[in-house]
Each structure stands twice: as structure tokens, then as C-alpha cells.
Computed example of a mutant assay.
Amino acid sequence: MRAVRAVVRGLSYGTLLLVLLVTALTIAVPHLAGAVPLTVLSNSMAPAMPVGSLAVVRPTMPLSVSAHELETLSPGQIREVNDTSHVGVGDVILFAPNPNDATLVMHRVCEVRSYASSTGEDRSVFVTQGDNNSMLDAPVHDYQVRARVWYSLPVLGHVNDALNAGEHSAKAIVAVAVAGYGAALAYLVRYVRASSTADAGASA
């Protein structure tokens, strides 16, 4: 009987910890670290980051710079606020392949090429490729980089999408999670009571 109760407590605590961990990784940690949670929409980075994965990225420029502002800035102006010095081979970066286009690509850096501009300033060009792609991307200039992937987790991108779908959706998800947790706990309680009754009958 004690063993059954221990299992019930373990499952109960385990479920609660899992819910808290998912919440922390998708909401709390990115927010506290100034990172941004994104959902992977293609399989170009599979198997490391398949469709539906959560990719938490750290922007290479201040979050105060809006997408609208970026459209009005020249490459030189973007370089002034965009720090790509920490991006290296093996990193997965988020970049804008085309100017004035909101579409972003998330691929791995295969090579970093540095050169000096005509004014003597350091410049960088990144050679990237999707893990699941057979061809390299067009060269990515430093002013095209938007963020570097900090960590990624499978499946949780769907959770991120649901949480960002709106206040009502978020409340619904929380309600379903709580209801599911409560139902599982109620089932375990009934199981323990049934086991206790059976044990008492056997002892009699």
C-alpha cells in the first residue's frame, strides 16, 4: 500500500513539475533573458529542429528596434546597432535573406568570412545552410542577421503558438492542463482507494 501511495505522489509531483518546466522554458526563461521564443515552420533544420520545435533566440540588436524601423535603415545604420561578433561556425542564426521582407530564415553557420571595407571597417559574411538542405544559402551579410538560437526543444513550438494565439486561447490551454492534471489525480486517488478496499478484504 505504501508503495502505491509513493507511486501516486511521484506521478502527481512529476506531472506538476513537467507543467512548470514547460511553462518556464516557453515563457519565463526567454522573458527574463531578453530572448524571443519562435516556432520552427519548416524541416530545413531537421532532425535537430523539426517542424513544431520551439527555438528560443537571442536578438543581435536591441529589442527596441522594431521591424518597421529596420525597413528604413541602411546596411551601415543596421551595423551600428547589430552585434554579430559573437556569431561563429556551428551557431544557428536567424537572418533576413531579402531586404524589406519580413520573411526570416533559421540556418546553421558553416563558415565566417571577415574582410575590411573600403573605409577600413571590419565586415563579416556568413555562409549558412540548413542541416536538412543539400545546398548552401546565398552569402549572409552581417547586417542581415537578426538573432542567434540559444536553445531549441521539440514539439513545444505548438505550445508557444497556442499561448500567443490570444488571451482566451491561453486561458483555455491553462484550463485544459489543470483539468487534465485534476482528472489524472482523481483517477489515481480512486485507484488507491480500490486497492485499499481490496487489501482490507484480503486481510479479513
Rank of each mutant, 00 (worst) to 15 (best):
V176Y: 07
K171C: 03
P154M: 09
N164K: 10
V178Q: 03
G157V: 06
A162Q: 09
I173C: 13
I173S: 05
G180N: 09
Y181M: 11
A162H: 03
G182C: 15
G166D: 08
H158R: 14
V176Q: 05
L156F: 12
P154D: 06
E167A: 13
A162N: 01
L156P: 02
A170V: 01
H168Y: 13
K171R: 15
Y151A: 07
D161I: 03
R148D: 11
S169A: 15
H158W: 14
D161W: 00
A170S: 13
P154L: 03
N164A: 15
A175M: 04
I173M: 13
A162F: 07
W150M: 13
L163C: 07
S152D: 12
A179M: 08
Y181K: 02
V155W: 08
A162E: 02
Y181P: 01
G180M: 07
G166L: 09
V176F: 14
E167R: 12
V149S: 04
D161L: 09
R148T: 15
A177I: 06
L153C: 04
S152M: 03
R148I: 14
A177D: 01
A179D: 02
A179E: 07
L163R: 00
V178C: 10
V178Y: 00
A165D: 13
P154N: 05
V178N: 06
G182M: 15
P154A: 01
N160S: 12
A162S: 08
N164I: 00
Y151K: 06
